[in-house]
């Protein structure tokens, strides 16, 4: 990692844009510029010669590229805004023809993103809206009508201090984020007030993504231990509930510790827990 960082710093010092394709999985730094595959051959070494050979350089076949979190578009250029490893997903199943690029970064601070499912805490009730703390720079607003089956007459039963699982409808910078607890069809789909008891704790945003990855072994192993219920918020909050308080605490500790454990260490702990 240190080596990779050194390389990254070096290239940044040279202030030459690197091709996105060549730095996949490597560390990129904020401010760095990335070249997309079709920009590469135009500006890379020997590009001029190649350009002459092309029949009509004006009509370059360009593909749509999606830039995910950690990257920003600035005119025609692709800039890095977060420090981390550059990731790429091949196109297919939505997205552009050039696939998706994003930066896999480690951070604890949550910035609301439209469509993210998060766990919030109701901090105030004022007239038609609830104020919900989601860990962002500003509390999100949540309309009392944004619950399944709620009407003007039939208000949802939400108290200050309740946990809410919802998604962002509006999340712009410089604007108050707005949450809802229904999807576009008006169904709750599991969103709304999270039940009683249970334990809420905070982890890094990276761990949440690690746990929610489709092929995550940790969750599968945890699920075999006890009967339990978990809610993951993309804002770094996890809510767990098991049959007893002791089990709940064990689960919370395991999930927190998972972030920095090797597979072997984890397997050891799980086998020890399964025995007891």
């Amino acid at each position: 990692m240190a080596e990779a960082a050194a390389i990254a710093a070096e290239s940044l010092a040279g202030s030459k844009a690197r091709a996105a394709r060549t730095v996949l999985g490597q560390v990129v730094l904020p401010g760095e510029e990335l070249l997309l595959p079709e920009q590469e051959d135009a500006e890379g070494p020997g590009g001029a010669g190649e350009r002459l050979l092309r029949l009509n350089p004006g009509a370059r076949s360009r593909v749509r590229v999606v830039c995910g979190p950690g990257l920003r578009r600035s005119g025609d250029r692709l800039l890095v805004t977060k420090c981390g490893r550059l990731r790429h997903k091949e196109p297919g199943g939505g997205g552009g023809g050039g696939g998706v690029y994003w930066v896999d970064s480690q951070q604890k601070r949550y910035v609301p993103v439209k469509g993210d499912h998060v766990i919030g805490i109701v901090t105030a009730k004022s007239g038609d809206i609830f104020k919900v703390d989601v860990g962002g720079s500003e509390p999100a607003s949540l309309s009392y009508l944004a619950f399944e089956g709620a009407t003007k007459r039939n208000r949802p039963n939400v108290q200050v201090g309740d946990l809410i699982y919802g998604q962002f409808l509006v999340a712009n910078k410089d604007m108050e984020p707005e949450m809802v607890c229904i999807d576009s069809c008006g169904r709750a789909n599991g969103m709304g007030v999270i039940g009683q008891d249970g334990l809420l704790f905070k982890v890094t945003l990276g761990l949440i993504r690690k746990l929610l990855a489709p092929d995550c072994e940790i969750i599968q192993e945890v699920g075999k231990l006890y009967p339990l219920e978990i809610v993951f918020g993309m804002n770094g909050r996890i809510w767990v509930k098991a049959k007893t308080i002791q089990q709940t605490l064990i689960l919370a500790n395991i999930l927190e510790a998972c972030e920095h454990m090797t597979t072997d260490q984890r397997k050891q702990i799980f086998s020890r827990l399964a025995e007891s």
């Binding site: 360009r62 920003r72 050039g98 993103v113 439209k114 993210d116 929610l212 489709p214 945890v222 809610v231």
Partner: peptide, 27 residues
Amino acid sequence: KESFIIEEQSFSFCEDLLYGRMSFRGF
């Protein structure tokens, strides 16, 4: 000019993350 870079700030889209609510063993 028509932009060929689309911004999408959601990790769920990039990494195909699972749904955030889970329950195991019939809880």
